[in-house]
Write a protein that binds this DNA or RNA. Sequence first.
DNA 1: TCCTCCCGCCATATT
DNA 2: AATATGGCGGGAGGA
Length: 460
Amino acid sequence: KPEDNTDVDQKENKFLEPHKKVTKTPLKQQSSTSHSVLGGIRPDLSAMTTPTKLQEPPVGEPWTPTANLKMLISAASPEIRNREKKRELLVDEDHTSEAVENLQNQLSGEEFHPSRKEKSLGLLCYRFLARYPDYPNPAVNNDICLDEVAAELNVERRRIYDIVNVLESLHMVSRLAKNRYTWHGRHNLAHTLGTLKNVGEDQKYAEQMLHIKKKGFELHETYIKEPLREQNSTNKSEVKPKEMYFVELPGMEFRAASVNGRKDKSLRVMSQKFVMLFLVSKPRVVSLDTAAKILIGDDQKVDLDHSKFKTKIRRLYDIANVLTSLELIKKVHVTEVRGRKPAFKWIGPEAFPDVNDVKPITLTTSAANNTPLPKVSKETFAKNLFPASTSKQSFTRHASLNHLMPNMENDQRRISSAPSSPVGKIYGDWDKPGLYPSKMDQLATICKLQLEAQSNKNAS
DNA sequence: TCCTCCCGCCATATT
DNA sequence: AATATGGCGGGAGGA
């Protein structure tokens, strides 16, 4: 089949995705009301169109009995809990019809009640990640079709965007075309993190965090009656309204989709900033509170515009969920002068290829000369980082330099030569045996095991 | 109650 | 205009 890509019309998204998920035969495929929240493999003949809400009949009640079992298992955690519950019931008294029924439902998937937990972004993300290898072979087709993924995972496309956006912020995927992404897995993670750390230091995030913390502290001290203006009279540390855009990596520049283009306001950038916070902080712990304030642009607006703060927090939860699924962070709590506050702790890699060499380039003409240094150039460098206030807007917006895309050949080579085996964990110390405090961690384990099992099974 | 955060409306960006 | 993306925040589930 002559693959005539080159901006082919993706009218017919006929291509194969990496995951060898063969449409296994449903146990009992039927049930007119095929609408389902989790399972249900829908033929979906009307392929590539935005599944506007009324895609499926609004019925939504009975869960597809057939519901592929795997899906069910994927959502194990709560499931297991139910099982426990069931056991209780059974033991308690002799088979109540209800108990039996429940058990049956349990096994058949009949009337499975999704429950909020099972629909969480985090869980969805696990399912998403389970589809692709951590270290994919760059030479093979690693395309991701958002439509398909959404359909197979049985979620609205909107949710996929959430996941993909933060994955993109870590360069674990890159936009290929409309509705298309390429999976890179963790190959670029180290570089990305290294870069983000540099940028984070550049942004003085550590200082900002300190400042925020301090400010919050004195704010709650007795003398808070300060009418107004007392502002920064004595403060030697003031905010750095530096604004920045998406931090890119050599091999994968923005691919349309607003990235880098317009004021890419949220998720992508927000996610990168959030990660930076971890990478520059002493104990790798940041509270949502602090993160939100810094990400907001650190204006005192935070106080007056509390709603904005709230929204920020909400986004951070979303981001945190997928970062958690990636096992880069985990939820914790910090106890501060205001009581317990939700926070997250970095549990990802600590050491990255120390490449301070190429500092984040401010999108200026100077970046044009893209002379790869013998050995470091290919290293990470951020683009489009620039101070908003002090910037010399002399740069021409999307000048040609936007396409200075350094050859990723080198990159590729380096990557492919790297230990392709997942076994070669470069940064030891992420799986702490026996330490699975949170449910999410358990889920991660479950999914992981399941993935392994499956990949073994149909190792074609 | 407070912490989480799903859900999906609808503004924007791309085609 | 039709679609694809993705801000955004109401309000409900869960501890």
